[in-house]
């Protein structure tokens, strides 16, 4: 029982206007408890779809997903939502534009009939480093980084064990990205969270994750440990080309070729 999230031969097929689009093809991976696992690959390679499939937001056409040994059924079990939560890529689209931050954060408590919501909302804001004066603001009164903090706070309201992170910082500036990544790492330590994180920035993945799965065209290409990445120790051409395109993200920036 070492593996907390197990994905076996997962396939996801969308039926779009009569056409079948197989977005994920026979992908298997496993993530240990309190581990941080990364998914990288070009856009459209099916990274987000894997996360959405875990949440029941994408149609699974083959294979199975187990969380702590329990197989996920078509209708998610009651305790699923208190176990797995997700942070979406675009902080401008993931908060309800007509709800205050307070409403957004207290909604999960209301759904599950958890009391003491005032104190919990204040504590959640504190937890993600937002002043409590933000509590009754609307999303459009917040910057992108602040919105993403709210989204993270919302995901943690139900105290899940697993956080699915879909490019949580790709819409953010460098300085804000640093703040959000630091926040995520701190929360992971404090709450003992397991991360399954998607990004197309190898440097972000390298900073956050212990193991990495490289994906292309919906399939898994290669699994790498963190050490393999830094030492450019890949076996497949695709992983190598991805790495080459990220050369400027290395610790020592190689001299520029063209002036």
């Amino acid at each position: 029982m070492s593996d907390f999230i197990e994905i076996d031969n997962l396939s996801v097929t969308f039926a779009a206007k009569g056409r079948q689009v197989q977005a994920v093809k026979n992908v298997s991976l496993s993530v240990g408890a309190k581990e941080s696992f990364g998914l990288v690959g070009e856009s459209g390679s099916g990274k987000s779809t894997i996360l959405r499939a875990i949440c029941g937001l994408a149609p699974i056409s083959g294979g199975e997903i187990r969380i702590a040994g329990e197989k996920l059924t078509e209708k998610r079990a009651k305790n699923f939502v208190t176990r797995v939560q997700m942070v979406f890529q675009d902080p401008y689209a993931s908060l309800h534009p007509r709800h205050t931050i307070d409403r957004t954060l207290s909604e999960p408590l209301a759904i599950h009939g958890i009391g003491n919501s005032d104190a919990r909302v204040v504590r959640a804001l504190e937890d993600v480093g937002l002043p409590s004066s933000f509590r009754f603001r609307y999303p459009h009164q917040l910057s992108g980084g602040q919105r993403q903090r709210v989204a993270i706070a919302r995901a943690l309201m139900l105290e899940p064990e697993i956080l699915l992170l879909d490019e949580p910082t790709s819409a953010l500036d460098a300085s804000v990205q640093a703040e959000v990544l630091n926040l995520l790492n701190r929360l992971r330590d404090e709450h003992g969270l397991t991360f399954l994180m998607v990004s197309h920035d190898l440097a972000v993945i390298d900073h956050m994750c212990d193991r990495i799965l490289v994906m292309q065209h919906g399939g898994a290409v290669e699994e790498l440990a963190r050490a393999d990445l830094a030492s450019a120790n890949m076996k497949t051409d695709y992983a190598r080309s991805l790495f080459a395109a990220s050369a400027n993200r290395m610790l020592e920036t190689p001299p520029k070729e063209t002036a």
Partner: peptide, 20 residues
């Protein structure tokens, strides 16, 4: 300089990234 320093780097340390 601050903006440059907050970028994570492949092979960099796991210390918290310096903020701006």
């Amino acid at each position: 300089q601050g903006l440059l320093n907050c970028l994570p780097k492949i092979g960099g340390s796991r210390e918290p990234l310096p903020g701006l």
